[in-house]
Design a protein around this nucleic acid. Structure first.
Lengths: 151, 151
DNA sequence: CTCTTTGCAAAGACTTTGCATCCAA
DNA sequence: TTGGATGCAAAGTCTTTGCAAAGAG
């Protein structure tokens, strides 16, 4: 776990990755990559990315953005996170943090992957199962949505 | 966490719960409850439950089973688990175990909720977030799908 | 020029909903 | 009898796909 260093990703590095893989750097790709980098902290879903891309470069079809996300995922540039809602979230893969999602208010909290170290070790030992903590958010209730509880 | 004793659930107990809430015990309800109890270990999705119900009582509409699942969930009889695929899994709530889902082969492993005790304590302390380990499966790779690894 | 990418519209997977009919209590 | 439950078909949400036209290198 952890230690999966992907390194920082500048737009140019990502474009090179695309070109190296035989892909072409198009306006839609540039726009999507910009959004992914600039709005890194916003936990955007595909739908929201599509909206943001269309805002910056009107006319780009949703299917195009979906296709680009797929490709970027194959190239290990981005990854999607299941959040318990129908729509998945996307983040740059080098970000490397996992998530806590409150199913009451929908709030999302970033947590370092190391938080899972002990659990990962236990699951590995007991079930020989290698968890990927980033791939699915942990669901539960955040402090605002938990009633009774003294300070 | 844990300690959420819901108690054993026989069909009759469930039917009483339904009646008490103003509901009626119909053939579709009986059939669904039977399937839920008998196929407890099979980790069925709504789709699979629908198929199984239709097998035992031909003609029951999918929408009916979806509606019954919703109602049973409101009554805390069943709960759904997000597994990283589009379709959610359903289980009787008293079962109280969490899941490990291999995104390679799809295998599902049951694990006791207590496995999360330490992590839950940490998250509660650090983020005041109360995880619900059963609500979302942990994703990763099972031993069969993990290459290199001695014995 | 060639091969990838795009837009558009249609299809797909999963789930919900409206409504007239039907049935449990 | 009388509200809740059901079947059917349509709608909804999120995502994928086919195909001809457009575009990157």
């Amino acid at each position: 776990m952890a230690g999966e260093e992907i390194g920082p990703r500048t737009p140019e590095q990502i474009f090179d990755t695309i070109r190296t893989s035989g892909g072409r750097v198009t306006v839609s790709l540039r726009t999507l990559v910009d959004v992914l980098i600039e709005d890194e902290e916003r936990h955007l879903t595909a739908d929201e990315l599509i909206a943001e891309v269309d805002l910056r470069a009107p006319g780009i079809a949703a299917s195009t953005t979906y296709r680009l996300l797929q490709r970027l995922e194959e190239l290990d540039v981005v990854e999607h996170i299941h959040t318990g809602s129908a729509a998945a979230m996307y983040q740059l893969r080098h970000h490397g943090h996992a998530h806590l999602v409150c199913h009451e208010c929908g709030s999302i909290t970033d947590i370092p992957e190391e938080t899972f170290a002990t659990l990962a070790a236990t699951l590995d030992r007991t079930y020989r199962f290698a968890i990927e903590p980033r791939h699915a958010a942990l669901l539960g209730r955040c402090s605002n949505c938990t009633p009774e509880r003294g300070s």
